[in-house]
Design a protein around this nucleic acid. Structure first.
Lengths: 202, 202
DNA sequence: ACTATTCTGTCATAGTGTGCCATAAGTCAT
DNA sequence: ATGACTTATGGCACACTATGACAGAATAGT
C-alpha cells in the first residue's frame, strides 16, 4: 500500500474521530462541517470528497456491515432457506463487531451513543438500511427464483431480517461493552428465529 | 369552521397538489421550494410555515396514517395479543385508503408513483416510519407491561408490523387502482400473520 | 529528474431552512 | 360598521449543506 493510500486512510479516520467527538460533545445538528474540517485541518471542500454528506459520515459503519452481509450471503449454500442464510449473515456482522479492537471498538461505542442521543440520526440510519434492503431483496429473489418486483414474500423475509438486526442494535438503549451489545444482538436473532413458523420462508 | 381555517386548508392542499405534480414532472430533487411556492402564488417563507421541510411535504400522508394507527390501537381490547392489535390498526389504515375518493385518492396514487420513482424518498419514508415505530413501541410496551427501554420483543413486534405495512405499500412496484393496491396490502398482512408462530407475541 | 495522475484548497453558486419584524387579513367585541 | 385583538403572510438577512470549476501541490511511475 502506497504512501498516498495510507495518508488517505489516516485522514478518513481523523475526520471520523474528530466528527464523532464533536457530535457527542455539542450535538449532531449544531456541529458544522466547517468545524470538523477545522479540527482535522482540512478544507470543508475536502470533507465532501471523503464523505458525500454529514449523514454519510455518521453512518459510515453501514457500508462495512452491508459488505459483510453480501459476502456472507454469497458463501451460503443456495438451497439454504433464505431467512436462515440472512441470519448467518447477521451473525457474521456480529462476529466482526466482537472482534473489532482498540480504536475501532471505541468508534463503534461512540457511534452507538450518538444514535441513542439523536433520534433524528436513527431515522437516517434506517433510511440507509432501506438501501441495503433493496440490494438484499435482489439477492434473495435470485435465490428463490422469484421476480423481486412482484414477490412479496421475498421483501417480507428481507424486511424481517433487517428489523431483527435493527432491534438488536438499538435495544436496549443503554451503554455497555462491545461484548454486551453483541450479546444483545445475538439475543434478538434467537428471538426472531423462535418467533417464526418453521419453513415460512420457503 | 371559520374562513381562516378553510383558507389554510385550501392553501395546504394547493401546495401539496402543485408539489406532487412538479415532482412527478421534473423529479423531486430538481424541484425547488421556490418553484412550488411560485405555482401556488405564495412566498417561499410561507411554504415552510405549512411544511417544516420538503420531505415533510412529500410524506404528509404518514401523519394521517400514524394518527389512524394510534387511534385504532387505543380502541382495541387491552388483552388482545399485541401483534394482532397492530394488524387491526394496519387494516384500519387500509380501509381509510380504500374509502378515500376523488382528489384524495388521486393524491395517494401520485405519491405512490413518486416513491416508486425516487428510491431516495423511500429512505425518507422509512425514516418517518421509524418515528412512528418509537411511538408504537411505547404503546405496545404499556400493553405488555414491559419497559420499552429493555424489552426486545416489544420492539420486534412493532418492527415486524411496520415491515408488513411497508412491504404491502411498496411491493409490487407497479401502478394500479387504489383498490388493487389496497388488496396487495391486505395480502401482505395475511402473509405476515401466516408466517409467525401462534402466540409468539405474548 | 520528468511527467502523469491524483489529491487538495479557493472561489463561486444553488438550495434548504430559520429568526425577525413589519404588514395585511380574519375574528370578535361593542 | 368601527375599533381592538389575533393570526397569517411577505420580505429580509442569515447559517448551513452540498456541488462545480479551476489552479496548484503532492505523489507515483519511469
Amino acid at each position: 500500500m502506497g504512501l498516498r493510500e495510507r495518508k488517505k486512510e489516516k485522514t478518513r479516520l481523523a475526520i471520523i474521530d474528530a466528527a464523532l467527538d464533536l457530535f457527542l460533545e455539542q450535538g449532531y445538528e449544531s456541529t458544522t462541517v466547517e468545524q470538523i474540517a477545522g479540527v482535522v485541518d482540512v478544507s470543508p471542500r475536502t470533507f465532501f470528497r471523503y464523505f458525500t454528506s454529514k449523514d454519510h459520515l455518521a453512518l459510515w459503519f453501514h457500508d462495512h456491515g452491508e459488505e459483510i452481509i453480501l459476502e456472507t450471503l454469497a458463501d451460503r449454500p443456495q438451497d439454504e432457506p433464505p431467512f436462515t442464510a440472512l441470519m448467518h449473515a447477521l451473525r457474521a456482522v456480529l462476529t466482526d463487531v466482537e472482534c473489532s479492537t482498540g480504536e475501532d471498538a471505541e468508534r463503534f461505542l461512540k457511534l452507538r451513543r450518538l444514535l441513542d442521543a439523536n433520534p433524528h440520526l436513527i431515522g437516517r440510519s434506517v433510511a440507509r438500511g432501506a438501501q441495503t434492503e433493496r440490494r438484499l431483496a435482489e439477492v434473495i429473489a435470485a435465490r428463490r427464483g422469484a421476480d423481486p418486483d412482484k414477490d412479496q414474500l421475498t421483501h417480507l423475509i428481507v424486511a424481517f431480517a433487517m428489523s431483527t438486526m435493527r432491534v438488536g442494535f438499538e435495544c436496549p438503549r443503554r451503554d455497555g461493552t462491545v461484548a454486551e451489545i453483541a450479546a444483545r444482538m445475538a439475543e434478538s436473532i434467537d428471538l426472531a428465529e423462535r418467533s417464526l413458523r418453521p419453513g415460512w420462508d420457503l
